[in-house]
């Protein structure tokens, strides 16, 4: 009886405490605008500016573009007012990005000056590939390769100069309009026409047969990057244990404003007869 009495006491105490009211505050909506701008050497300036998506239920922002701004990009030739193209995109089709040049962005939003600066990296130097073509066996549905028949090519070495220890990234894209699968057994989630490596301080990358899912011509794009861009890959957390504002190079705003240079090679993946 005594035991039962004690248990009842404990449980009632729990409910007593559980009934306590708690304060429920909701954090204010973050009004800083989001800038997304990759300044590719040789291309014209194009910048996307959006609002943040609201977490609070008090604001209903879904991250739509902000189209009412006066956005300027400065270079060594002066200040250029960009034209709004709708959906938060601002561009100047006459302002071509030059490698090695510095660009600054600034505009006023909610009475604050939002700004950012970047330097466009130099074009990649001495980008080479060990082979230009590759032959891979077609694997039909329902067939399994036997060890004796399974052959792999040597890796394709991609090399470039990286004397100043900067970040590079490779993106491989299939250029065919309706490419043919190398392995019909490949599950749907792996049927991708492009893949990349992580931005890294390196001067080479090795491509293997297994990375290609489709036959045809592939574009190998080497990106010369600023560390700002590399930080995008390791600057986010989605856990309430470790939420903090992500790394950004924008003052009074979030996102990225960074210069990029590229070089491109092509590789053909042929069907082995």
């Amino acid at each position: 009886m005594r035991f039962r009495y004690n248990v009842i006491m404990l449980l009632s105490a729990t409910f007593f405490f559980a009934a306590c009211k708690k304060e429920t505050k909701v954090p204010a909506y973050n009004e800083e605008p989001v800038i997304s701008a990759y300044l590719f050497a040789g291309n014209c300036v194009s910048i996307k500016i959006t609002a943040q998506i609201a977490v609070s239920t008090e604001t209903s922002s879904t991250g739509e573009g902000i189209d009412t701004l006066h956005v300027y990009v400065d270079d060594d030739s002066g200040s250029h007012l960009l034209m709004n193209m709708g959906d938060g995109v601002y561009a100047d089709t006459t302002l071509m990005i030059g490698e090695g040049k510095q660009y600054s962005l600034h505009f006023v939003y909610k009475e604050k000056v939002i700004s950012g600066t970047t330097l466009v990296p130099s074009a990649p130097q001495n980008f080479t590939q060990s082979v230009g073509e590759l032959s891979v066996s077609k694997i039909e549905e329902g067939t399994m390769p036997t060890p004796g028949s399974f052959q792999m090519n040597d890796p394709i070495s991609l090399n470039w100069s990286n004397d100043d220890q900067s970040y590079y990234m490779i993106i491989v894209e299939n250029m065919e309009s309706s490419p043919e699968l190398i392995r019909d057994t490949t599950s749907t989630r792996f049927r991708i026409t492009s893949f990349r490596n992580e931005p890294a301080v390196t001067n080479q990358y090795q491509l293997r047969d297994q990375q290609f899912q489709y036959f045809g011509t592939h574009r190998l794009v080497l990106y010369h990057l600023n560390p700002d861009y590399a930080a995008l890959y390791s600057g986010n957390s989605n856990s309430s244990q470790s939420l903090s504002n992500p790394t950004t190079n924008i003052t009074n705003g979030v996102g990225i404003f960074t210069g990029i240079s590229t070089d491109t090679l092509f590789l053909k993946v042929n069907k082995q007869q």
Binding site: N30, V34, T50, I53, Y233, G235, N236, N238, P246
Partner: peptide, 18 residues
């Protein structure tokens, strides 16, 4: 307080929270 996505160079996007 807010969140946004950035489209990366390979076309995928990453989510960020402020």
């Amino acid at each position: 307080a807010g969140s946004y996505s950035i489209t990366l160079l390979d076309g995928t996007s990453e989510d960020y929270f402020t």
